[in-house]
């Protein structure tokens, strides 16, 4: 439970830990099995926007409104590195091998939005570089979210103008730029598939899309009736989970159902809605799926993190065509 709105929740690679950040300044870590709190990481001076842990679950990276990216020792909670940047940091993500960290900064006060890549020394005790190994300046439109492709090949970024770019992660050259979402409503989330060959977006334009990382071709499209803040791909089952809701200022009355504060499950391949999970009293800001696909967590504007374990019927659910194919 937090006092303020959640901004991101994220499992570690093994799925035993769940990290959460919110607009209060603290990072929390929980046992994903029972929701017990394991610890907190203190140091940020502003709303923490984003978080990620490296593949070996030794280092935690966070980005915040206090214009810093910080690295933490997961085990001890010790701060091991702070990078001071000119503007707030909206998204950080470790590469697949944990050797690089990508971060995106806000456009503000005469600073253009930028995408920064830092080399990471996996040794907790070791020195970290002060300067980024690569800096991409977003001349046209700031990046709202970024992610790594498989094998650190590309950096994928979603921009304020609804386009999605593919950058060469070595040179920073923009290889592709495609208009995927509407101009105006922001792309709020972008999450990679487990093997990082495709990814899902969530936009305030009420749609979520799955794209191929190599071609940026839209493979699937999910249409909803509410602005979306987060989208996650489930493992084990071919679903996606979408979350969002009317913003508080747009909700005229108090009834929770009017705000559409539900986690929505769609079939990843057929694009049909298959179910909803209620519970939050405000919009869902962030959703994360357990790497083994056994549970998911959602963080809401209401200040709650909800942890759901999937039951047997969830795993049994299958479309007729899937069942017949599975039998062959």
């Amino acid at each position: 439970m937090f006092e303020r709105a959640l901004t991101q929740v994220k499992y570690n690679k093994d799925g035993d830990l769940l990290f959460s950040v919110s607009k209060d300044h603290v990072i929390c870590v929980w046992f994903s099995q029972n929701g017990e709190r394991l610890g907190t990481y203190h140091g940020h001076q502003g709303a923490v926007w984003t978080i990620d842990s490296n593949p070996t679950s030794s280092i935690l990276a966070s980005g915040a409104a206090d214009n810093t990216v910080r690295l933490w020792d997961i085990k001890t909670g010790k701060l091991i590195k702070t990078w001071d940047l000119p503007t707030a940091v909206k998204r950080v993500e470790f590469s697949e091998d944990g050797l690089f960290l990508v971060a995106t900064t806000e456009q503000r006060m005469g600073h253009l939005g930028s995408i920064l890549v830092y080399s990471i020394n996996p040794d907790i005790e070791g020195e970290q570089d002060d300067e980024p190994s690569l800096k991409i300046t977003c001349e046209q439109s700031k990046a709202t979210v970024v992610a790594w492709s498989y094998l650190n090949k590309y950096i994928i970024a979603a921009h304020e103008n609804g386009t999605i770019s593919q950058y060469d992660s070595k040179t920073g050259e923009q290889l592709l730029n495609v208009q995927v979402h509407e101009k105006g409503p922001l792309v709020m989330d972008m999450q990679m598939s487990p093997d990082r060959t495709y990814f899902i977006t969530a936009s305030k334009d009420k749609t979520s899309k799955i794209l191929d990382v190599n071609t940026l071709q839209v493979l699937k499209k999910f249409e909803t009736d509410t602005p979306l803040n987060s989208a996650a791909i489930t493992t084990k089952k071919e679903f996606v989970i979408l979350g969002g809701g009317q913003e508080a200022r747009d909700v005229t009355t108090t009834a929770a159902r009017q705000g559409k504060f539900e986690a929505r499950f769609y079939h990843k391949i057929f694009e049909d809605e298959v179910g909803r999970v209620r519970g939050h009293f405000g919009p869902l800001n962030t959703i994360a799926v357990h790497p083994a696909g056994v549970s998911y967590a959602s963080g809401g504007e209401d200040g709650y993190v909800r942890l759901h374990h999937f039951d047997k019927s969830y795993f049994d659910f299958m479309y007729e065509v899937e069942r017949t194919r599975a039998q062959h």
């Binding site: 495709y198 057929f270 479309y319 065509v321």
Partner: peptide
């Protein structure tokens, strides 16, 4: 059902290539 079968095949084919 036919449409779903097609979608499923397309997805599987794309996945196995990727």
């Amino acid at each position: 059902i036919e449409a779903r079968r097609r979608l499923l095949e397309e997805w599987r084919a794309w996945r196995s290539r990727i």
